[in-house]
Simulated assay, not measured.
Amino acid sequence: MRRMRGLAVWGAVAVLGAAWPARAAGGVPEADLSYHGVAVLHDGRLDVRLVPRNHGPADVADATVGLRWSAPPAARAPRLPGGCARTGERSVVCRTGALPADGPGERMEVGVRLRGRPAEVTLEIDTVWADGAVDRNRANDRQQVLVLDTGDAYSF
């Protein structure tokens, strides 16, 4: 009987442990963020559409993604969507919102007119903040894309 109670308690602990978010060393939640989308450069305008994704194991309440481009913007500051802010002449950060484990976030769109109609632009995408979660696989949330002024969509 004692043995059965011990097994029942152990089973309850195992079930409760599985319900709590996965934690890295030190009790910090662990998540694996990535960004997939397209970038189009046409006639001096760079348009970026992306979907953030959290491969888990823990949910992320909010995160920010940084976008940087190699060419300066046109004289007028770009109009940015809600949740985005300029961090420099050639960079912005945007909130992703909540990212459930093993799920996508909301689609994001950022467009900017570039000075002098460059023939090509290098776009860099990177996680800036992930609500304190540890991401052990940084290879899939840091990307660099060469976008040519062809009007074609370059996937990342």
Rank of each mutant, 00 (worst) to 15 (best):
R3Y: 11
R5V: 15
A8L: 15
V9C: 11
W10T: 12
L16W: 03
A19N: 03
A19R: 08
A25S: 09
A31M: 03
A31L: 06
L33D: 00
L33W: 01
S34N: 06
Y35C: 07
H36Q: 14
G37H: 05
V38I: 10
A39F: 06
H42K: 14
H42E: 13
G44T: 04
G44R: 05
G44W: 01
R45N: 04
D47A: 12
V48Y: 06
V48F: 05
R49T: 07
V51L: 08
R53T: 05
N54S: 01
G56K: 00
G56T: 02
P57G: 05
V60S: 01
A61R: 09
T64W: 07
G66T: 07
L67T: 04
L67W: 07
L67C: 06
R68S: 14
R68Y: 04
S70C: 09
A71Y: 07
P72I: 10
A74H: 02
A75C: 02
A77F: 00
P78L: 09
R79Y: 06
G83T: 03
C84R: 02
A85F: 14
A85N: 05
G88N: 04
E89P: 12
S91H: 08
C94G: 02
G97Q: 09
D102T: 07
G103Q: 08
E109V: 09
G111M: 04
R113E: 12
A119S: 15
L123E: 05
I125F: 04
V128Q: 10
V128G: 00
A133M: 02
D135N: 14
R136H: 09
R136W: 04
N137D: 14
R138T: 13
A139L: 13
N140R: 13
N140A: 09
D141L: 03
R142F: 12
V147E: 10
L148A: 14
A153H: 03
Y154G: 00
Y154T: 15
Y154F: 15
F156W: 10
F156C: 09
F156S: 08
